[in-house]
C-alpha cells in the first residue's frame, strides 16, 4: 500500500525570546521525527505533556513547517506553497479545546465554514453540512447555538466541520483531553466510525491509553523524538519502557501483567477485557 502521509526526519525549533522579544535561544521541539501512515490506517501518537506530539500534528496540515526534513501528504510536499489549501483540505484537524475552534454561532453555519472557504457552491455546501452532521449524530442540533452543547457534542460538531471539507485524513490533537468520560466515548466512537465506514485515515494524539487500543499502529513520543513504534499489543507489553516515558498501560493490561508476574501462563499484550477473560477461562480448564 502507498504511504499516504510521510514525515521524514523532521526537526522543528521554537525560538526562546527574552523580555525585549529578541531571540535568546532555540528549543528543539521535534528532533529527527519520522512517521508514516497508509491510506485508511488508524494511527495513535502517545506522549506525555510537552513531548512534541502537538507540534508534530500541526506539521501534517501545513500549519507549521519543518526546519529540517520533509512532510508529504498524499504526494504533496507541505513546503510547496501552491498546494497549501489542497493539503489543508485533504488533512483536516481537530484541536483540544472545543470552544476555541468553533467559528459559527449556529452549529450548521460552523460546519459550513470550511466548504465556504473552499468556494463550494451553496447547494452542495448544504448537502455536505447535512451529511456531515448526520455522520457524527449531531443533525438534530443543526440550528442550536454551540454554547448550549456539551463538550463531547462540541467536538463532534468540529469533526463534522472537518468532514464537510471531504478530507482523506483527520488529525485529532488531544480531542478528548478536556472532556468528561461520556464526551470522550462519543468522540472516540465517532473517530472509529469514520475510519471504519468512510475509510478516512485517522491520526489520534492522546495521553489516554484506553483510546489507543483500537488503533492499527502506535507511535510513542518523548522529548521531541519517536521512542517506540508498533501495534498496540507490542507497545502495551512493554510496561517498564512506557513508564520511563511518563505513560502507563490500560488497566486491564495492568492486571494481566501483574498476573503474569505472579506466575500465571498468560501471553503478552492483552488489551481487552474479553481477551483476558478468555485466557483465564482457559487456565481454569487446565
Amino acid at each position: 500500500m502507498d504511504k499516504f502521509i510521510e514525515i521524514d526526519k523532521i526537526a522543528y525549533d521554537y525560538n526562546r525570546l527574552d523580555e525585549e522579544g529578541n531571540v535568546e535561544g532555540v528549543n528543539r521541539a521535534l528532533d529527527g521525527v519520522s512517521i508514516d501512515a497508509k491510506r485508511g490506517e488508524f494511527i495513535t501518537i502517545l506522549g506525555a505533556n510537552g513531548s512534541g506530539k502537538s507540534t508534530l500534528a500541526k506539521h501534517i496540515n501545513a500549519l507549521l513547517f519543518p526546519a529540517e526534513g520533509t512532510v508529504t501528504v498524499d504526494g504533496n510536499n507541505t513546503a510547496d506553497e501552491e498546494k497549501l489549501l489542497e493539503i489543508r483540505q485533504c488533512a483536516g484537524m481537530i484541536f483540544q479545546n472545543p470552544d476555541n475552534q468553533i467559528i459559527g454561532t449556529i452549529v450548521e453555519e460552523d460546519v459550513a465554514f470550511g466548504p465556504e472557504n473552499m468556494g463550494v457552491e451553496s447547494k452542495e455546501i448544504r448537502e455536505r453540512v447535512d451529511e456531515s452532521l448526520k455522520a457524527v449524530g449531531m443533525y438534530d442540533y443543526r440550528e442550536s447555538s454551540p454554547n448550549k452543547l456539551s463538550g463531547g457534542q462540541k467536538q463532534r460538531v468540529s469533526i463534522a466541520g472537518v468532514l464537510a471539507m471531504h478530507p482523506k485524513c483527520i488529525i485529532m490533537d488531544e480531542p478528548t483531553a478536556m472532556l468528561d468520560p461520556q464526551g470522550r466515548r462519543e468522540v472516540i466512537r465517532a473517530a472509529r466510525a469514520l475510519n471504519d465506514v468512510e475509510g478516512i485515515t485517522i491520526i489520534l494524539i492522546t495521553h489516554y491509553m484506553e483510546e489507543a487500543i483500537y488503533s492499527d499502529r502506535i507511535y510513542v513520543m518523548d522529548a521531541g523524538r519517536v521512542v517506540m513504534e508498533g501495534t498496540p499489543k507490542e507497545i502495551f507489553s512493554k510496561t517498564e519502557e512506557l513508564k520511563s516515558h511518563k505513560l502507563t498501560i490500560p488497566q486491564v493490561t495492568a492486571v494481566a501483567v501483574a498476573l503474569k508476574e505472579a506466575g500465571l501462563n498468560l501471553p503478552d499484550g492483552i488489551l481487552s477485557r474479553k481477551e483476558l477473560v478468555a485466557e483465564l477461562a482457559r487456565l481454569k480448564k487446565e
Binding site: 496540515n61 500549519l63 489549501l85 489543508r88 483540505q89 483536516g92 484537524m93 484541536f95 467559528i103 450548521e108 453555519e109 459550513a112 465554514f113 470550511g114 466548504p115 465556504e116 472557504n117 473552499m118 468556494g119 463550494v120 457552491e121 451553496s122 455546501i125 448544504r126 453540512v129 466541520g161 472537518v162 471539507m165
Partner: peptide, 15 residues
Amino acid sequence: EARCYHGGEGRTRMK
C-alpha cells in the same frame, strides 16, 4: 487557517 480560511476572496456561502 486549518479549515482553509484565506480571507474573503473566493468564499462562497451556504445560505
